[in-house]
Design a binder for these strands. Sequence first.
DNA 1: CCTACCGATCGGTAGG
DNA 2: CCTACCGATCGGTAGG
Lengths: 225, 225
Amino acid sequence: MSLHSPETGTDAAPRRGRGRPRKTADERDDGNRRQDLLRAAARLFRSQGFAATSTRDIAAAAGMRSGSPFYHFDNKEALLAVVMQEGMESATARQAAAMERSTTGLRRGQTLSAREALRVLVRNHFDVLLGPDSDFIPVMLYEWRSLSEAQRIEVKRLKDGYEAVWVPVLQALHASGELQGDPALSRLMIFGALNWSVQWFDARRKATLDDLTEAALQLFLKEAK
Amino acid sequence: MSLHSPETGTDAAPRRGRGRPRKTADERDDGNRRQDLLRAAARLFRSQGFAATSTRDIAAAAGMRSGSPFYHFDNKEALLAVVMQEGMESATARQAAAMERSTTGLRRGQTLSAREALRVLVRNHFDVLLGPDSDFIPVMLYEWRSLSEAQRIEVKRLKDGYEAVWVPVLQALHASGELQGDPALSRLMIFGALNWSVQWFDARRKATLDDLTEAALQLFLKEAK
DNA sequence: CCTACCGATCGGTAGG
DNA sequence: CCTACCGATCGGTAGG
């Protein structure tokens, strides 16, 4: 919802006289105008794609004029890179918190089984992909090619950190026979199965994120031997 | 590889005198100039995305001048839609042929097990996604949102036809206990696992499409009860 | 299928 | 952060 009427024709519409309405106190700076831009960019990049989204669209969605995003970001690509970086940092923090919660809930001496650990990771991943405020990670997944080479390296580093938590869990499941086949290929296919949900999941339908988690575990895991 | 030097500045460069070189006999019409455009478009849409690919890029890749694609297609969107439609028709035909081959190879009275049928479908799907001439289907998978509503309906119809072959196979595997959990969710996740390979598969690495097929079956299937 | 072109839009900037 | 603007590029077309 833009606060302004759309800019018609060139954005140098005369509009003399009393001019645009002043912004009220709580929409002025606050230091979070940059965050507003990032959220608007994430939403538009997700729904329309990076190349199909103009910086004017983003500005309007954040209640700014067409040139203003460039006060906060060097260029359009930098906006994309920051969306991905903040998304990955937030996702990694949420993942760590979810694992932490599950571990501290255990009785002394007890450890989280690999199966339960995978459930926590999968459930959190669905939340990151499909829950509230979930535009950032889908953008990272589906706009990879729009990054410059240097940006790709940085985002890949964050992505590797996120996935690293999964590796020992999948190895333990492989060792127990609950997961079969090459664990590296398994990991890629599991992420594929989960990440693809961005394409088809509809929150208005009946399936919940818990349902998806259960279906995923049933699909991937064998009984322990 | 364009036959022409790039058009510099406006595409109304003077270039008087002897003009551009005549095209030799075997690059002239043939009736397959349209196919050249489709192949070029599929390749560029896959690697750069629809919105980031200009109709000039496509024309150049097919050895044409900037206005010529519009002799063959009404507009850029129509090009995308035809890429997807031809891709789906070809994939469905190849899938039917693969199933046919596997069935006729059997001795009289024998039937293809559901497990073997799934192997054939998965292996063919990897070929469609990652084999030679495999640009069309990835474009369909990842440029869905660039279609108009009417085009989406038509492409969805073709996609449903392709997926319909999988449904009884997955149901049989569910009935035998080899596949667990809701078969509809299983199908979506299996396609996700396979389709995601477009993002990471590198033909120069060691894993073959047979390896991927084997890994997929090991990941999804339990032992028959 | 090419030539020559148009109107619209886009990313980005200087100066305030 | 806005105003006013620029050069480049884009999809598409008329006429041959």
